[in-house]
Simulated assay, not measured.
Amino acid sequence: MPEAPLHWQKSSFSGGGGDTNCLEIAGTPTTLHLRESDTPATILSPTPTALSALLAVVRNVP
């Protein structure tokens, strides 16, 4: 059975106005996928532990 296509959403921080350089996310019931809009073929699918660690670091950047 083929996988359903991912439905990508732009980050609310991308600024709008047709800006094409932003972070996009797509989710399945078990995985969150991340990609940069200007390189859509490169998709990151971190484990929940790795994503949690990344978010902890990003939150602490001054």
Rank of each mutant, 00 (worst) to 15 (best):
T47S: 15
E36R: 00
G16C: 12
L23I: 14
W8V: 01
L44Q: 03
I25E: 00
E36K: 00
P62E: 10
L23T: 12
L54C: 05
V58G: 12
S12F: 03
V58D: 09
T20E: 09
A56T: 09
A53N: 09
L44H: 10
P40F: 05
A4W: 09
D38W: 12
E3F: 01
E36W: 00
E24Y: 04
P62F: 09
A26Y: 02
P2F: 01
V57L: 08
L32W: 03
L23Q: 00
D19I: 05
E24D: 12
S11Y: 09
N21P: 12
L6W: 10
N60I: 05
V57D: 09
I25L: 08
R35Y: 06
W8T: 02
P5W: 03
S37R: 00
P5C: 09
A50V: 08
G18H: 04
D19C: 06
A53R: 06
A50T: 13
L23C: 11
P48W: 01
H7T: 13
T42M: 02
G18S: 14
R35I: 04
H7S: 14
L54A: 10
I25Q: 01
R59G: 15
E3A: 12
D19E: 10
P40G: 12
N21M: 07
M1F: 07
L34W: 01
P46I: 01
P46T: 05
M1N: 11
D38C: 07
